[in-house]
Design a protein around this nucleic acid. Structure first.
Lengths: 225, 225, 225, 225
DNA sequence: CATGAATGAGTCTTCATTCAT
DNA sequence: TATGAATGAAGACTCATTCAT
């Protein structure tokens, strides 16, 4: 019942098949993002590829699977995109900065993907871990190692790496969505600059930091829950 | 056609009517959050209040209006909640910290509201500005004044207040959702601590800050895009 | 279960009650005619009398009964109207002419009643003999006697009275409706003139009548089925 | 959305499609006539053709359109029927007589169509000119020419042709409906005979005509309103 | 492989009627 | 009597999915 036609010997067929899948997923991303999940008819997606409704079912067993594959592909593309950008950059801070810019740039170029993430959660609330989170988990470890290195090198404060990675990724996530909902008016560079400025330097002045530090020393040092 | 019954003198009726609206909105929030918008039958919401389907239509003209009223009420409650928490706190930094904790606490107590925000966006993509953003706009100004005061007092670095307010609210938003999607396992205090630590102190060590600052001074000062 | 309130001693109450029934029927005729049977809400009729929905059910047991009573009242008014017009007219031909004018005049003044007749048939197709026919039957006999008299007096050709009464009433019926559907533009006098001219004098010239009569005489005289 | 499937080249499909439309319209006429417009579920019509509800919507975009198409088809069939009957008849009077018989015969064979006309008016009161009237208008002109010819030939009295055509068509209309409501007991020939007898010869005797004519001559000649 | 006609489950909404006040 | 809040049956229409061609 629906899967992928021509899974066999003939590599020419396999190619054609994979290409069509890609085409369908690409069209699906746009249509789903524009019309929402319930608002999208399989027919529309088929039509966007010049195919008939029934043909879609030769490549995906159901609308649901088609949608989930669409989100999955989108997340894979996001990962690729960020990873490629970082590839040649040696300095970890520069790499982080590049990754941040790259993240925002990806969603600027593919705003429909922000919608897909929303829609996935709205429709598959309890059937599935959000694909975004799944992919995030994969990268978390790598970045935490980067953060640990930076701390070892005395470049980052000795903040728990889990905290760093959490705050960084939550901030990216929130910034991207807020910008998306506001019509995507800010450029990736603007977004990255704001984010990194505060992330790196914090908000407090050295004087205020000192004030707070001394006050803390005076308190019972049991607050570090 | 559909609005609110008993729009008249009788205050006892008016009361009962308002109470029932509340009851319906509260039930609606839970049901919509659990089952999604298309997955929710008006019937379920009615049943949750011990009412018949038709009765709901005496209070709200359509499922759509009911949903939007539900989101609106949720956002109003969020604002109230945060504002009340901050009420008696004089020190602006303490107030900000309290607001942050209060924000996370609200969503911990009302996890269904996070879902409503998602659902609203997923279903009303282009028909409506997200209610969340509408309410955020209202508060932004007040907080920006707070930030300006902190800068004037030499407690915050001279970062543009728009940037501060943007980064803070995006970080809250992202943290809340990520935590929610992960099952809401972290407490409001934990979330607030992580967020505020990095927000206030930044990630860099004093040494690294100095390195970066001097490097910047050396560069062509055209970076201020 | 719904009938008529205050069916008892108190004549003042009875009066008030009858008056209210009248009021309701009159309002109902207008609303039903404007909005059709399924398109009419009992609520509208009540509102038109300044009453609440529930009150209507004190006077009529159901929407259906209310409607049928409305049609019935309309037909009774039609009969009254025509009969009153004819009352003092001695010459049978003049009386017939007056009745015809009066019939058209009634529907000009009460165009909603034409609609009611349609609606009755459309909704109660097989549940009920059309009220119009019922009332017609009552009058048929009287008019047939008139026709018989006219034949006896040598003023009408010796056409079977059933035929006369049938043709006359069908022509009135058809003319009234056609005029009504066309927006009721022709006056009762115009309609009556056209109808009576042809009804009385026929279409053929004396010469043509003779031609046809002689041809008929030549044929086998078995055609009078 | 919803029109006719298979709008393309394939003539076999087109045929099947047209045939199915016909089938649906024919079934619809019967069901609508039996159960009324609101009383008819699209489902019933589908079932009458051995189809599923959804299939009907492939051929007609809505219940309303289906109904209107049903009435339209009925009127077209009426026109065809009458026109075919008249085709080979040269003598205008004979042709008129044939048309009248044919008209009654049509409704005897298709009594459901009388109902459709009622229902259309009852449901589409103000949305639409009755289809019957629309089709009548088309034929009126032709018949008026016939009447003019008869007058020129001295076979019809010099009655205005508009009056003739009005009276004739109103009489047919009224006769048809009255007979239909009475259970359609009279044959087309009986109906035609009664109608034509009086239409052609009128009701008055030659003597009475003379009386009236002389009386008229005596009156002030201002009566010609 | 591709098609698109056919299917029928699923849901919002209306409104006649009831009944507690 | 009068009210109007509450009820819940009823029905049009959509669209994912199937399958004969």
């Amino acid at each position: 019942m629906g899967g992928t036609p021509a899974r066999g010997n003939n590599s020419r067929k396999d190619d054609a098949c994979a290409r069509r899948r890609e085409e369908l997923l690409s069209a699906a991303a746009k249509v789903f993002a524009r019309s929402g999940y319930p608002g999208t008819e399989v027919q529309e997606i088929a039509a966007a590829c010049g195919l008939a409704k029934g043909t879609v079912y030769l490549y995906f067993p159901s609308k649901e699977e088609l949608f989930l594959a669409t989100v999955d592909r989108a997340m894979i593309r996001l990962c690729h995109h960020v990873r490629e950008t970082c590839a040649g950059i040696d300095d970890p801070l520069d790499r982080l900065a590049a990754a941040v810019r790259s993240y925002f740039a990806f969603f600027q170029s593919n705003p429909e993907i922000a919608e897909l993430l929303i829609i996935e959660r709205a429709e598959y609330r309890d059937r599935k871990t959000p694909t975004y989170l799944e992919h995030k988990r994969e990268n978390t470890k790598d970045w935490q190692e980067v953060y640990a290195g930076l701390i070892r090198d005395g470049r980052f404060r000795a903040v728990p790496v889990e905290r760093i990675s959490r705050v960084v990724s939550d901030l990216l996530y929130g910034t991207m969505f807020t910008n998306h909902f506001s019509g995507g008016q800010r450029t990736p560079n603007e977004q990255a600059r704001d984010v990194l400025d505060i992330l790196f330097e914090g908000l407090l002045t050295p004087a205020e930091r000192e004030t707070r530090a001394s006050r803390e020393r005076a308190t019972v040092p049991a607050e570090q829950t």
